[in-house]
Write a protein that binds this DNA or RNA. Sequence first.
DNA 1: ATGATGATGCGC
DNA 2: CGCATCATCATG
Length: 194
Amino acid sequence: MKLAREFYARDTREVARDLLGKVLVHCDGGVRRAARIVETEAYHGPDDRASHARFGPTRRAAIMFGPPGVAYVYLIYGTSHCMNVVTGGEGFPSAVLLRAGEPVEGCLHSTRGPGNLCRALAIRREHDNGRELTGDDLFVLDAPPPAEPIIAARRVNVDYAGPWAERPWRFALEGNAFVSRAPGAWRRVRRVRR
DNA sequence: ATGATGATGCGC
DNA sequence: CGCATCATCATG
């Protein structure tokens, strides 16, 4: 069963945790590609200095201010695409970055790391940015809560964000082999409620 | 540790 | 307009 808009219309950090174990599906011209989400990051509100929304509703970030349940896909470092799902209430900019998955079906590449995950599922900014996750091409399938405990840590590569970089808004399934490597990963990890 | 590679956002 | 920056990855 596909996750409905109400799933996304909640606090970013809650959505980021609840997305773990769910299955991201991309129907790519008749071919189905899917991965189980094992790592996410929350970007929460206009004051989050790590968020693309920190400059306000610019052309790129405006989508984060819009309705939840929409894909936000952008190109980073000229080489990698990253996919987010827009969350929260309209007008309050927030999104969850999908950082890693576990291959389920039709994956073209490693699913470890946000850029790799997009490449594996053939998700690209030109085709998928702004796509409604309530549609039939790109969506997330519901799944039972994961057996693995959920862990949290500071977000990756957002040192420019000052104190906001310390917030434990990166979530993952403990011990999962597909969780991305990153500097300082899981050092100050805290366990989160199930 | 570093380079590839291009969109983005800012400041002039 | 120019320029620095960047929610990455692969390689050595």
